[in-house]
Design a binder for these strands. Sequence first.
RNA 1: GUGGGUAUGGCGCAGUUGGCUAGCGCGCCAGAUUGUGGCUCUGGAGGCCGUGGGUUCGAGUCCCACUAUCCACC
Length: 375
Amino acid sequence: MYKLIKTEGRAKRAEFTTVHGTVQTPVFMNVGTVAAIKGAVSTEDLKQLGCQIQLSNTYHLHVRPGDEVVKKLGGLHKFMVWDRPILTDSGGFQVFSLASLRKIKEEGVYFNSHVDGRKIFMGPEQSMQIQSNLASTIAMAFDECPSSLADREYVQQSVDRTTRWLIRCKDEMERLNSLEDTINKEQMLFGINQGAIFPDIRIEHAKRISELDLPGYSIGGLAVGEPNEVMYDILDRVVPHLPQNKPTYLMGVGTPKDILEGVERGVDFFDCVYPSRNGRHGHLYTNHGTVRLLNAQYELDDSPIEEGCDCPACRHYSRAYIRHLLKAKEMLGMRLCVMHNLYFYNKLMEEIRDAIDNGCFASYKKEKLEKISEQ
RNA sequence: GUGGGUAUGGCGCAGUUGGCUAGCGCGCCAGAUUGUGGCUCUGGAGGCCGUGGGUUCGAGUCCCACUAUCCACC
């Protein structure tokens, strides 16, 4: 259930209530693809880092350990010891990003596993079944994410198929939620808007999927190579055509700047691999721009990653020490960097929520952008 | 001491029958990365080819001496 608390322009401050608790939005979902945040960050750590909701992946968990296994062990929440909401991505994007060998047909997609190369078939029904087995809080629709370079004709045809797939997802989820042995009978389905960089196709699609009255909607297929301005422009045009009394989720985005721009345009949910993946490689986010900790200038730097930061890394350790750990490929180095970045992202969202609450998001955004673009 | 091998950027190596501005991996320096394959990619710096002679139009490549180092034998 989505409850709007306050708005400023198009920016929305709301809370989203689920069977696994309430999420304050705008929110950043911490990405734990295989039911774990890479970098040895535990669910206990995540709570300390201010994480409200995690994201895991249907495709990855289907391949390993297998959604049936997770189901037998009581579902994802019990399995990974996390009692807050979990959103599972449908696997649609992996078909686009991982599978070099794939065949997209009306019934679904045939492709090869990235782990052992075996043939896998996934369609709307399979994706829903897997996500139902995982028993996540929110399941994403199985969609196709066409390349931002795809031509108009292909995109239109792909989007039409994604719509048909969405209807199949909805039917299948309703069926699964009514079954006796389903773990989470309140599982929610979010639809996904596609249309590459063609605003009219996206708007038309947004209208069509809005009619299905799903509990939330997302915008997919952005930040996949097109210029940032194009993404912002599409958000400007498409978000108003999605239901305003439901959460809007911008998939896979993004940088702190992208998030500020997204919130301004009415986005509630974000997720991105940046804080964790970049953290693992020593690329750290601070209020004074990004710090590339592997750069030689930090060899003798005895200060924390960010002065005044209250994260577990900054409270105790110096840049020089963490840099050394990364160079030595010690797990602790990655762990501290990932924790700092997740803390930064979650803190950023908290500040954004406070700013909207206080009616000063516009000025907050301006100041924040100036700060984080320092270098 | 004798015989044999090896000496090429920080490290490990390629360098064809002598032929244009000497390559490669790792490391180093810098940059990318947007619904995660603990990756990957893109640039860059760095070498009087152990030293000294010689042969040749031309030598990292051939010859001589020296030095260093490794192996075997005494």
